[in-house]
Simulated scan of single mutants.
Amino acid sequence: MNDKINHQFGTIVALFMCGMISLHGGITLLYLSMTSVASTSQEILILYLSGCLGIVLIPLVGASCERVVLVALAAKVLLVSCALLTGSVWTIPEALCSGLIASSSFYFAMREVSKSQNGKLLVSMLILIINIESLVWYAALGWLSELQSPMWLSFAYGIATILPLLYIGTFVSTAVTQRVDIKHLLDLSKSLKHYNLNCYMLAVFVVNCFNLSLHHWAKLDEQHWWGSIPGITGFYILGILSSVALLSRLKVRNEKLLIVALVGLCAIAYWLGGGATQDSLLLIAAVFGLGVTSTLVMSSIVADLVKTHDSLSRLLVVAVLAAMQVCLISLIRIAEVFAESVVNEWQVIAVAGVALIVLKIRQLCIEGFLFKPQ
């Protein structure tokens, strides 16, 4: 009986610490948006995603993912120590290391889920834990930024960095990684469902943009609690939990659910790219909608991504997702040059979402025509 209780307690602690790896990217983007005044959101995101792409080097050199992430976390601890001593944040190494660490979250989350026979229950618990942690940490960082205390802000960020370090050192055993070549990776990538990856990438890109915009949005309405970082984050998480409750009631095919979720995501992104940020109540409604729609998009295709059982496929999925986001940022840059005007990321998200909707409708129409009974 005691062994069972100890096992359950250990599982919960492991999930809480594993959740900190999944949250690491969001915390870093928020932290850098607060401290790196000289860098734009797009520059921070490009550096962060470049770090995410670095995970593909792990199978190419035959290194262990766990050890590589441990080294990256140790480097992050040193960077935070330098920030505490000198008062300056080194944006480039911070973003690169954080991208590598955050990109491994899918790998570690699948490891935790695969330990149990009831994987769906563990996934639900992990989602709930990540939401609780994000609300606590975002509120803490927001409160410290309002106090204009950079030293305590860096100290809190350092604690958030040490927790994943403890998780890997305590609960994770080093897995053997087979060295592969680029040709093998390319052959393996052909088996992935690229449309689903594009949809998942768009939802992840939305989350990254939300994390980078959060500090800016909080400055627009400092008089009301719902305009603060905890308030905006709370409504976003409420949207996530609402979508989870909605999914438990709905009995809709994933393809139809995906189209509906993409339509909602496009409308909200277009709204945010225009005038939704000019009114705090409209912004809160848009943020709530982002939580709902982005979660619905991920949920409708995550079952397919979870089927990647081997470590190499998981690392490849993460690398492809990062590469696609880099391409999306490149499109923003190209659009700005040719349009000779400022094109923000929310407008590009809306356009990319419309393209994915058209492709899915076209695919469904072709399948309906080919399999139409005679």
Rank of each mutant, 00 (worst) to 15 (best):
S145M: 13
S145E: 14
S145R: 06
S145Q: 15
E146S: 04
L147D: 02
L147I: 12
S149W: 13
P150M: 10
M151T: 10
M151Q: 04
M151C: 10
M151P: 07
W152Y: 12
W152H: 09
L153A: 01
L153T: 09
S154P: 03
A156E: 08
Y157S: 08
Y157E: 06
Y157T: 07
I159R: 05
I159K: 00
A160Y: 09
A160D: 03
A160V: 07
I162R: 01
I162Q: 05
I162M: 10
L163Q: 01
P164H: 08
P164K: 14
L166M: 03
Y167F: 13
Y167H: 09
I168K: 08
I168F: 05
G169Y: 15
G169R: 12
G169D: 06
T170D: 01
F171N: 00
F171M: 03
F171V: 00
V172L: 15
S173Q: 04
T174K: 06
T174L: 05
T174F: 01
A175H: 02
A175F: 01
V176R: 04
T177C: 09
V180W: 00
D181Q: 10
I182H: 07
K183I: 08
H184P: 03
L185Y: 00
L185R: 07
L185Q: 01
L185I: 03
L186Q: 13
D187H: 11
L188N: 04
L188I: 03
S189A: 09
K190N: 12
K190G: 04
S191A: 14
L192Q: 03
K193Q: 15
H194W: 15
L197H: 15
N198E: 05
N198A: 15
N198S: 11
N198Y: 14
C199W: 11
Y200F: 13
M201W: 07
M201Q: 13
M201V: 07
M201S: 15
M201G: 14
M201H: 08
L202Y: 06
L202F: 11
A203F: 11
V204L: 13
V204D: 07
F205M: 06
C209W: 13
F210C: 04
